[in-house]
Every structure is written in C-alpha cells, then in structure tokens.
C-alpha cells in the first residue's frame, strides 16, 4: 500500500459515504450539500489518478455550476426546509436493483484487475489535454459544443411559456 493508495481509499470512502447520504437523507437542501462533498472527493480522486484538468473542470462545472443549479431548483419549487417524509417510495425494489448493479459491477472490476498496481505516468495537464482535444478529438468536440448550444436554447424555450403560445392560438383558430 503506497501513500497514493491510502489517499484513493480515503477519498473513495468519503465519496461513497456522501453519495449514500445524497440518496437517503430526508432533507432536500442537505442532499444538494452532500452532493458537493461527494463531487469534491471525486475531484480529489481525479487528482490522485493524474487527471489534473478533469479534476479542475469537475470543481468548476460540477461543484460550481451544476450543484448551484440543483439548489436553485430545490428553492424555486418551494421544497420543504425541514425533513420531509414523502420523498421516498418503497425501499426494497430500489435497494435490490441498486445493490445488485453496484455489487455486480464491483465484483466484475475486482475479478478483472485483482490487486495489481500500475504506474501513474504523465499527468493530464491542461496543455496535454488541449493537444488531444484539438488533435485527435476535434470533431467530437465541435459536435459536443453544438449539442450544448442546442440544449441551452431548448432550456430557454421550455422555461418561457410565451414562446410558441401565439402559434398554438393561431392553430386553434
């Protein structure tokens, strides 16, 4: 066990523990805050695994933007502030499927990799990752940017009831 292994184990334990709290807590706002801890621990995992740029993007986009959006949604839908009892349905089918898929995948990974150790070579710095994205993967990169634009325009159209309402009225006439 090297120091990196201990770090991976500790960060992984934090991530799984916070993730478990996200799906079990009865406080809506606290679920969002536990998600911050979980995603932060995952960013730490990326750093130990030598994916620097992915770690910083995780902090910026997930912890910075996605969680804020989720907390906005919690507040704009007038969620209860205290504990709520009606957040969950029956536990056992979800627990069965969730534990089955989680433990099944874990067993698959353990049987595939065992206790083998690998060297961490060449961390994925911003320069190196930029080289790859704009070298081998420039076409998927452009497609993803168009997808993001389309999704944002779609979000605006969906959330504004006045867009498209006139057409519907004309059609009704």
């Amino acid at each position: 066990m090297s120091g990196a292994d201990v770090l991976l184990l500790a960060l992984g334990a934090v991530a799984v523990g916070a993730g478990a709290l996200v799906v079990t807590t009865r406080h809506l706002v606290r679920a969002g805050l536990h998600l911050v801890v979980c995603l932060g621990a995952i960013a730490g995992l990326y750093l130990v695994l030598g994916a620097e740029l992915v770690a910083w993007v995780q902090v910026l986009i997930y912890v910075g933007a996605v969680v804020i959006l989720l907390l906005f949604a919690v507040m704009l839908t007038r969620a209860p502030i205290g504990p709520a009892d009606d957040l969950d349905r029956a536990a056992w089918p979800a627990a069965l499927v969730g534990a089955g898929s989680g433990l099944g995948l874990a067993a698959l990974f353990v049987s595939a990799y065992g206790w083998r150790a690998v060297e961490v070579a060449e961390p994925g710095t911003a320069g190196l990752m930029g080289d790859r994205i704009f070298g081998s993967w420039v076409l998927p990169f452009e497609v993803v940017s168009v997808l993001l634009l389309a999704a944002l325009i779609g979000a605006i159209v969906v959330s504004r009831p006045d867009i498209g309402a006139k057409d519907a009225k004309e059609r009704a006439r």
Binding site: L8, G12, Y113, W115, V118, E119, V120
Partner: peptide
C-alpha cells in the same frame, strides 16, 4: 504506484 481496483470499486 496505485491500485486501479480501488477507484473502480468506488
């Protein structure tokens, strides 16, 4: 050196 099985199981 790291053990990849740890992050995989996580």
């Amino acid at each position: 050196m790291i053990r990849p099985v740890v992050p995989f199981v996580v």
